[in-house]
Design a binder for these strands. Sequence first.
DNA 1: AGAATGACGCTGA
DNA 2: TTCAGCGCCATTC
Length: 106
Amino acid sequence: MEQTFDQRVWQAVALIPQGKLATYGQIAELIGAYGCARQVGWALRRLPLPSDIPWHRVVNARGCISLSPSREGSDWMQRDLLLSEGIPVDEEGRLPLGPYRWHPPG
DNA sequence: AGAATGACGCTGA
DNA sequence: TTCAGCGCCATTC
């Protein structure tokens, strides 16, 4: 089954267990596209909400939510979802990426 | 077709 | 530690 880049990203993100965090680079590398971290962000941006994909568990390598005007505030929704999963998020969108880091399969 | 964009990552200061 | 610059590559105009 030939899937688009976006679908591969969504599949990888769907593997993230609840209460865990993953970075765009991790997802990119997981789908065999190391260096395409930006494209992962696009896939999530095109992701229709609401969706069954735990996109809120994906943050950048800095360990903070990527705020952007293009998200129309969906970034703050991500913060709320993370708090709902027991992950403390700072007002600046920063979170403890280390302890909550997801260990990808493979 | 060519140029610009972007929910990133890494290195250097 | 934080800030700025450069590189990566698919999508879009």
